[in-house]
Design a protein around this nucleic acid. Sequence first.
DNA 1: CTGAAAGCGCTAACAG
DNA 2: CTGTTAGCGCTTTCAG
Lengths: 336, 336
Amino acid sequence: MPHRPDASRPTLRQVAALSGVSLKTASRALNGEPYVSAPTADRVRAAAEQLGFRRNAIARDLRAGARSPLVGLIISDLGNPFFSRVARGAERRLRAAGLQLVSASSEEDPELEQALIGEMLERRVSALLVVTSSDDHRFLDAERRHGLPVVFLDREPADIVADCVVLDNRGGMRHAVEHLLERGHRRIALVGDLGRLATQRERAAAFELALTAAGVDDWSRYVRTDCHDAATAERAVRAVLDERPAPTALIATNNLITIGALRALRDLPERPALVGFDDFDLADVVGVTVVAHDPERMGEVGAEQILARLGGADGPSHRVLLPTELVPRASTTLDT
Amino acid sequence: MPHRPDASRPTLRQVAALSGVSLKTASRALNGEPYVSAPTADRVRAAAEQLGFRRNAIARDLRAGARSPLVGLIISDLGNPFFSRVARGAERRLRAAGLQLVSASSEEDPELEQALIGEMLERRVSALLVVTSSDDHRFLDAERRHGLPVVFLDREPADIVADCVVLDNRGGMRHAVEHLLERGHRRIALVGDLGRLATQRERAAAFELALTAAGVDDWSRYVRTDCHDAATAERAVRAVLDERPAPTALIATNNLITIGALRALRDLPERPALVGFDDFDLADVVGVTVVAHDPERMGEVGAEQILARLGGADGPSHRVLLPTELVPRASTTLDT
DNA sequence: CTGAAAGCGCTAACAG
DNA sequence: CTGTTAGCGCTTTCAG
């Protein structure tokens, strides 16, 4: 089918002309405003139908310097199930309020993140949800002061105070460590994501704290970080298992790392215990103990904060802490 | 942080005023157009910076009846890893061409799908990528004729001829069946998705064909369809395994169904062989034979077709068939 | 190199 | 109930 570059679409003016009314009357009829007689409205609607008219939202949004009914979501990677679920939750909640989600992946690159946010600001999105990879949020703060609701998801900014929805990373990690300590493990390895991510730092700090509190002080030799995909994690796990004495248990700080760990452990005759942060689709089937939480809920709560701000809520910044739950499964309850 | 409803943003006019030039000169400077002296340009840029100016893309796009640089993607569920990967692939390819992806979930509801498409058309997206849940595409066809590039992903429309990118569903299913037949299976169960989906119908048809060709003719008693989530699939699998004589093998027609099947099979003393359509994250670890393919590639190829059409390509509709590959793993190669 | 005028398609005011 | 006028913020003519 040939693509005709600009087969011009009918405008409201043409609909008005065809139905023999003024522009404004046509506008009123199609927007279901009051003060249009039923027959007139019908005539206009018929004309619109006949011409295949579609209101031009660009023009509509421009009117009165209005913002568009779009809400931007910046995530590190749409392909990661954790983030795609966050997106789904946000989309659902926003749609119910008549807003539409526009998401973009920053690929964990602060510069790309800034560029994407810039594009969204130009598009005059009504609000922004951001899983930040950056540590400099001054320019966003300026936008916020300009009246743009911004909610940080999953990763709390260190340099500004803002609305955010984060997981109970410390509590989750503490439970994971205690769970292993209770089962007699003392040599516990930690395989983690990029050290510059807030979530990662919190989880690592809680790991250290819990072990130190239990009197374990050579924990640091079993720590590996900066694994940002399953393949890197798989190698890191193999490496840390080569330490002597070998760790008897392993904590993976997110879903991707857990997958890498499972690959590394697959063919081992004697597997260390494993706890993964983030629940995932087959965790129950594979029998992996996890620190579970609800990614969709994160998106929903973020969307709700946005809606509250758009509705005029004026209070101080609000920080929502989402709970985590340790789900014990075979990877820590069976002896290998 | 208080949300000031319309703390008006600076406009180009204000930038021009501050830098003492005309509107048009400011516009030229900020858009890097030629014919602006370097010092003038610098002055304008400084003023823009100082005011925190951001070009208003709504106004820009309106000018010249232009379309927005947005491309719409309609998928059934952003939360499904298959579709989120398709989205990622499309996003990446489009972004490289300066376009931005806007995705929305139709939740497999034809009416919602149509509403979402309508919104995108109003927003004047440059093109549309759609995983359709509907069987009526006349209105989309009208838009196509109006000059809007539309590419169907994963599911080919039955009622119109259009650009599309689909999997080799028949080939994939045939290989799955043959793989099982070669291993001596004759009683093969099929657990499938909603019967109204094109992919599902193709896969089911190929299943029937391959079995009939092999002389198996009581295949239909082992077929269960309309499972659209893991929980339903799990129940369907349990039910079909209760048939007597029981099936010795099972084919799950997509990733969600495979997950449900794995849950159903988990505690069985004697597991039937299993082949799943769609590869998934832990298929290797769990050892599930799958009909694999590349969802990101689907998104990329779709995006490329869009770009070609936007670039003026004028040929007839193009149908791209993406290959599938049978990846044998323990679920069909080990005897239980 | 720079500026003034016109207008994209629509809706908010204000008349009739 | 309906029509006219103005203008959102920007870019495109077309003159300086």
